[in-house]
Structures are given as C-alpha cells and as structure tokens.
Design a protein around this nucleic acid. Structure first.
Lengths: 129, 129
DNA sequence: CGGGATCCTTAGCGATACTG
DNA sequence: CAGTATCGCTAAGGATCCCG
C-alpha cells in the first residue's frame, strides 16, 4: 500500500497551524492534566482520592479538568448512585496511550543523530537559501 | 551510599505540592515550549526561522518563551554582531534530554501492569480504608 | 532582522460558599 | 462525597508600534 495517498505527512505536522494534533497538545499542556493521568495510571480512582493525591488542586479545577478529559475520551466517569455518592474515574484505552512512549520510541532504531520528529517532518524552514 | 539518606523519594514526587519537578512541568506545560524544542532538535535555528516553522506564534511570545527557556538552561542564545543582525538558538545538553524518553522508559522492563510512575510513588491515596 | 515596549483580551486557576 | 455556582486574580497569549 501507500505510494500516493491523499493525505500528505505535512497534515500531521504539529508545527502546522491547522494540524489537529495541536488540539491534543493543548489538552496536555496545562498545569494539571499530566498529574491526573499519572494518578489514574494505577487504576480507577475516586474524586476525593485524586484530589488528595494531586496536592494543591482545587475542587473546581479538578472538576473542570476531569470534564474536559472526559469529553476528549481520555477517561470515563462512573457514578454510583449510593449514599454518600461515589464517583470513579478511569483511563480509557486512548488515555492509557499517554502513560507510555509512542511506538516508534520504544521499537524504532536507537540512532541519536539527524532524527526528525514526526517522520518526514524535518523542521528545515528553508526561507531563502 | 543509600540506606538512610535525608531525602526521601517522596520529595521527588511530582504529585507533592513542594516537589521541585513541578517547576519543570510548569515550563513544559504551556502552549509553545514543546514545539520550539521540536524545531531545535535538528540543530541551531535563527529567530525568524523558528517563527516561520512554528506557525501562529507571535514575535513577543516567541521572545518570551525563548528567554524563559534560556534562563532555565534549556537552550543557549548566540548573537552574531552582523548587519542585518543574526541570532541563533540551540538546545543545551539539558534541553536535548527533552527530545527523548527518560532512561527508564528506554531500558527498563516492559511490564504494562501495576506500574507506578516515579519509582516508589504508587498513588494509593489511602484515606480511610 | 531581531527584538523591546505597550497595551489589551482571555482563560486558566484559585477561594469560598452552598447543595443533592 | 462530589460536586455546582460565583467571584476575582493573575499570567499567558496576542496586536501593534518602535528601534538599533
């Protein structure tokens, strides 16, 4: 397969303004997301447990961040209609991909030089030359 | 060495409010830092080249981010007193560590279950139980 | 060309109080 | 317990003009 597929690799270049991966980056690149993902790596956790483990996060911000991650399919929310109420958050398969390096990093060749990040991206911004 | 050193491993737990690594995280977890590091992975780049490659970044924000990264030792700034002026930015050894996964991820065991993130951290926030 | 200086907008974050 | 609802602050981000 391959050869001349319609979507060029430049479409998946993070450096491109219209690249969809910028949305993913925006979700990761904030103060709390990474820590929450870390906490959930070991399995489902309750709201209160997360808040205690991720020291310094306020209830509101935790709620906001969890909701955003839920919308994006990073984690799922399970509400148990008990009293007192219990709510658990769990990483989805997609969310678990955040807890380990991308395939290429684990399996690819271990060369350390002249490596461009997304394959075929090579940030050689040739302006004049 | 080892045995009873003063600094416990909980001191290097990102989840801890006083953990120094939160400073590092704060530097990474913003809109542009990651992209700038990506661009510089292939070698030194000029200010203008970076701005063109990292699409959508404004001059001021690029300057601010570069200055912050320079202060933190992630990259170095080389100014050549020519006309027109030329300034190049280059990743330091520390900055280059951001372009590859931490040692443990590359070399450690490939187990996928019951793994806690920083060694000996295990986010098992036991509140009551 | 590579900024510095200003000004402005927004959104992320945080504290507090209240509720099912 | 796990939220929601406000309110407020600050810093990140952005537009524009100016300068050596």
């Amino acid at each position: 397969m391959s050869a001349d597929s319609g979507l060029s690799d430049t479409q998946w270049n993070v450096l491109s303004e219209s690249c969809p991966s910028r949305t993913s980056l925006a979700r990761i690149a904030n103060k709390w997301t990474a820590m929450i993902v870390i906490v959930l790596t070991d399995g489902p956790q309750r709201f209160g447990a997360i808040q205690q483990t991720v020291q310094g996060i306020s209830g509101k911000v935790l709620t906001d961040t969890l909701r955003a991650l839920e919308r994006d399919g990073i984690l799922t929310r399970h509400s148990y209609p008990e009293n007192p109420p219990r709510v658990e958050y769990e990483l989805t398969a997609l969310g678990r991909t955040l807890t380990e390096p991308p395939p290429r990093w684990g399996g690819g060749p271990r060369s350390t030089s002249t490596r461009s990040w997304p394959p075929g991206t090579a940030a050689t911004s040739r302006t004049t030359r």
